[in-house]
């Protein structure tokens, strides 16, 4: 494999990691903590959406993120011919 395609593979990887990290921070630090007052108007079972994200939603999103990253990278590995 040429250095050029290694670079392209790595760039694509860093890009998808960055996008995932933004979502990761948004659901936990964002919805769960800092932006909670902004979401206070959205009721969820006796409390508000921010509370739900802090105690349930962020964890569920984390799982989705990892499995999304996994299948994205499996595709990327094949595309660049770097799979094992």
């Amino acid at each position: 494999m040429s250095d050029k395609s290694t670079d392209a593979y790595w760039k694509a990887n860093v890009r998808i990691i960055t996008i995932s990290m933004v979502i990761w921070a948004l659901v936990s630090f964002g919805f769960g903590i800092v932006f909670r007052p902004l979401l206070a108007g959205i009721p969820v079972g006796g409390t508000d959406l921010g509370f739900w994200f802090a105690q349930q939603g962020s964890i569920l999103t984390f799982i989705v993120l990892i499995f999304f990253y996994r299948s994205y990278m499996n595709k990327l590995d094949k595309e660049f011919g770097v799979e094992e």
């Binding site: 990691i17 995932s20 990290m21 990761w24 936990s28 769960g32 509370f51 802090a54 105690q55 962020s58 964890i59 984390f62 993120l65 990892i66 990253y69 996994r70």
Partner: peptide, 25 residues
């Protein structure tokens, strides 16, 4: 969590969010 309520959600998010870092970084 029972003792403090919402404020101790930190443990829930903190001890799970690390796995996203592990999987990607």
């Amino acid at each position: 969590i029972a003792a403090v309520g919402y404020g101790n959600s930190t443990f829930l998010m903190g001890w799970t969010g690390g796995y996203v870092l592990l999987a990607m970084l």
